[in-house]
Write a protein that binds this DNA or RNA. Structure first.
Length: 430
RNA sequence: GGAGAGGUGGCCGAGUGGUCGAAGGCGACCGCCUGCUAAGCGGUUUCCCGCCAAAAGCGGGACGUGGGUUCGAAUCCCACCCUCUCCGCCA
């Protein structure tokens, strides 16, 4: 949610921002005008309602005085009743205007940071930096799903049988590999990067989904349990960011850095295609997520270190990757700035997104009412950031793709060996 | 799931229709006092919205949430949510 005051004073800049994000000029203008108008209306109504209320309050206390003295108050009571009649209608209008205003405000995306490059689509995302070199195997590597099936560690057929397509079962060393990656990443972020481990709930309520921005706009992407009105989380970002919903944190305790493992559930309605084979786009996958709560003035510095913390995982796994800065046209709805980390897949000679690291500034904090305070100063909205550190399924994809050998076996990266119960190589099943 | 109790400020806790945003206490903060610490004394201490460029100031709202009754609701009524205790069930 953007700052309401910016709407009043900076409407033209917001329209320009929307255009940079890829909105048609008319669409952008309408969106902003809608919000501005409801804001005006709501403020006018507020003044009216407050004035009447103020009168009624005064009369009420006069009535109290009369009654205590045992005198007659019918005159005042009648007057107050008359005022109250108008009030109901006005209050109803005010409530409506506020709702419309909020709706309009929620449909305006975050303002990109000044350092975000302009562009139309992912084609225009500049490479921020890269690490490692493209491996050059002397054979044609297989794609991860083929290797996974040959090794007997990934079972797509049975995933579909017991659940539905888009679900996968891991067997034996494959299951162990997922677990090893989760533990490796959690340990790294806790012991070396100073994050506090959180094991959140995997179901959350409506307020939480609204707080981080999944609702109301993206409801159809989530699994919902109507009997209890709970949602399966699409990412640990939701429960972890909402930990501090409606709280005011002492600035002394910032930044707060949390790391959480969770499975992630996404309906992925209508997103099947060439790049979704195997583990790449699943209805359920594991992820280790990093979340930060920071003071406003620190958030961009914290974004850089958050990015570095995520990159460190790939470095230790010895996987070549690059970091791209999302351009204005590709930036997510609530983000002010996002870096994607893309890991290299030799089998396709392509880069695959494995982490997305974002600064939301106060956009989520406003929705979720997460604030901070220095000493006795007034509370202010803090900044939230998050990033995958990393997506486990896609890390398995990258390992199978990069570490496979000519004979069909797959080496385990050195950093993972301590977590693999003595397994150093995945051998094909017989 | 059944029965009962209860949800009030950072915390504890009073308050059952009329200056109650809320007594009292604890904590915190600021002064004073004091070799230091503790104690003591005095004061301060919720948040949201609006008017205003902003501050000050003023007005409105919030006692789990949403409705209702009333001139007036923390207090009465209804629904929902949550917590606790006991029973049942169970990893």
């Amino acid at each position: 949610m953007i700052e309401p005051r910016k709407l009043r004073t900076d409407a033209e800049n917001i329209v320009e921002m929307l255009i940079k994000r890829g909105y048609e000029e008319k669409e952008a203008r309408d969106l902003v005008n809608e919000a501005v108008q409801w804001d005006q209306k709501r403020r006018n109504l507020q003044v009216e309602v407050d004035t009447i209320r103020s009168r009624i309050n005064r009369i009420s206390s006069d009535i109290a005085v009369l009654k205590r003295k045992g005198e007659d108050a019918t005159q005042l009571i009648r007057e107050s009743q008359k005022l109250g009649n108008n009030l109901k209608k006005l209050e109803e209008n005010l409530r409506k205007a506020e709702e419309k205003f909020r709706e309009a405000l929620l449909s305006i995306p975050n303002i990109p940071h000044s350092s975000v490059p302009e562009g139309q689509s992912s084609e225009d995302n500049p490479v921020y930096r890269a690490w490692g070199k493209k491996p050059e195997p002397d054979f044609q590597p297989l794609q991860h799903d083929e290797i996974g099936e040959k090794l007997g560690i990934l079972d797509f057929k049975r995933g579909a049988k017991i659940a539905s397509s888009g679900f996968t079962v891991c067997w034996g060393a494959g299951a162990l590999l997922e677990r090893a990656l989760i533990n490796f990443m959690l340990d790294l972020h806790v012991k070396e990067h100073g994050y506090t481990e959180v094991l959140p709930t995997f179901l959350v309520n409506r307020d939480s989904m609204t707080g981080t921005g999944q609702l109301p706009k993206f409801g159809e992407d989530m699994y919902h349990i109507p009997e209890d009105n709970l949602y399966l989380i699409p990412t640990a970002e939701v429960p972890v960011t909402n930990l501090h919903r409606d709280e005011i944190l002492d600035e002394e305790t910032l930044p707060r850095k949390y790391v959480a493992y969770s499975p992630c559930f996404r309906r992925e309605a209508g997103s099947y295609g060439a790049h979704t084979r195997g583990l790449i786009r699943q209805h359920q996958f594991n992820k280790v997520e990093l979340v930060k709560f920071t003071r406003p003035e620190d958030s961009y510095q914290e974004l850089e270190t958050l990015l570095e913390d995520a990159e460190d995982v790939l470095k230790r796994l010895g996987l070549h990757y690059r970091v791209v800065t999302l351009c204005t046209g590709d930036l997510g709805f609530s983000a002010a700035k996002t870096y994607d980390i893309e890991v290299y897949l030799p089998s396709r000679d392509e880069y695959l997104e494995i982490s997305s690291v974002s600064n939301f500034e106060d956009y989520q904090a406003r929705r979720a009412m997460i604030r901070c305070r220095a000493g006795r100063n007034k509370p202010r909205y803090l900044h939230t950031l998050n990033g995958s550190g990393l997506a486990i399924g896609r890390t398995v994809v990258a390992i199978l793709d990069n570490y496979q050998q000519k004979d069909g076996s797959v080496k385990i990266p050195d950093a993972l060996i301590p977590y693999m119960n003595g397994i150093e190589v995945l051998e094909p099943a017989r």
